[in-house]
Design a protein around this nucleic acid. Structure first.
Lengths: 174, 174
DNA sequence: GCCGATAAGGCAAGATATTGATGAATCACC
DNA sequence: GGTGATTCATCAATATCTTGCCTTATCGGC
């Protein structure tokens, strides 16, 4: 990795080195994303393991616990868009959560009879409150070395990356 | 978020709101990490699908193709530390790669007879070169809206997060 | 030469993730 | 009222990913 003649380039920077440097940093970036995501699932599942939960179930419960949707629940399609997973996968996760009694599928009270709204059960609400204690501690541990400003920075960059990647799944995957 | 204990000194920022804001941003951050990682696997696997590969196999081949280890290969233990996956999982991925003839397990030429070095086969080397064309295009597409400076920034933040999370797996997980 | 530690593989169980194909109920439109 | 699109579910195949436990081979120290 020789990126030497970098700081003193009064004219046009050499195209070849620039492309090579970008590939190199992209490679490292995606490797870190891969590693960080592996570790997130590993440590996250451990953090909520005493509830028999996993990071995916955590994500679903977290989505359903948001004040804006706590009462009405979310349609499966909305959850798919929110979590960016496949329908087949989400169905399996929902099955497990429903089996554990944390979540229920109800027909939408309003118009559309095709929609099934997924909603937290009272038990799910209770378990989520308990999990929240562990989750707060998990966030504190994981981000202890990050200033709030840096957290925001990382969030924004990840958000843009997510946006770019979701465009690659096809124009409808927005 | 409702700001509760606001009756404190106007000089110091209210602790409660600060903690709530940090939790909120942490929550969004990890959701974005979850989403971005899902999308990375989805779009990445698609990018190398015509080689019958997946993102994990891509990661392994990428690790083995680095100039520093191209000839001697990497011990399984090194690969585990590098990719941060479990041994049981890596074994399965290596089995598939070995079955496809892209990778071989050889006894370490040097001292330790316990070590099996995983190395690219000539066929694996060839396939990797072809995959590289797709991978370069993938990186360009995914990071088109990012300046090189922003890529470095995101890499550094992810690297620190990876480090923090790996500390949480236990002191040996370094 | 014995023995604990290390490196790797085998086997099992369970959860997550993708794609693809199929089916059933419902809605919107004509 | 029929038709096509939408929403959700199901079955199947395949690949990851984790934990836990057991086995084998080897290394290093005593």
């Amino acid at each position: 990795m020789n990126h030497l003649a970098k700081d003193r380039a009064p004219e046009t920077p050499p195209m070849r080195d620039d492309a090579a440097a970008r590939f190199d940093i992209a490679n490292r970036l995606f490797l870190r994303l891969y590693q960080a995501s592996n570790l997130m699932h590993k440590t996250g599942t451990r953090a909520v393991s005493r509830f028999g939960a996993t990071t995916q179930q955590w994500a679903v419960l977290g989505a359903l616990s948001r004040p804006a949707v706590r009462d009405r629940g979310m349609a499966v399609k909305e959850l798919i868009a929110f979590l960016m997973v496949s329908r087949q996968n989400l169905t399996a996760v929902l099955d497990r959560l429903e089996g554990a009694g944390l979540v229920e599928r109800v027909r939408a009270a309003d118009g559309d009879g095709r929609l099934r709204h997924v909603r937290l059960t009272p038990a799910g609400d209770r378990v989520w409150s308990e999990m929240l204690v562990n989750i707060r501690r998990y966030y504190e541990d994981a981000l202890a070395d990050f200033s709030t400003e840096e957290c925001v920075q990382l969030f924004r960059l990840l958000d843009r990356l997510r946006h770019a990647l979701s465009r690659m799944t096809g124009p409808e995957g927005e």
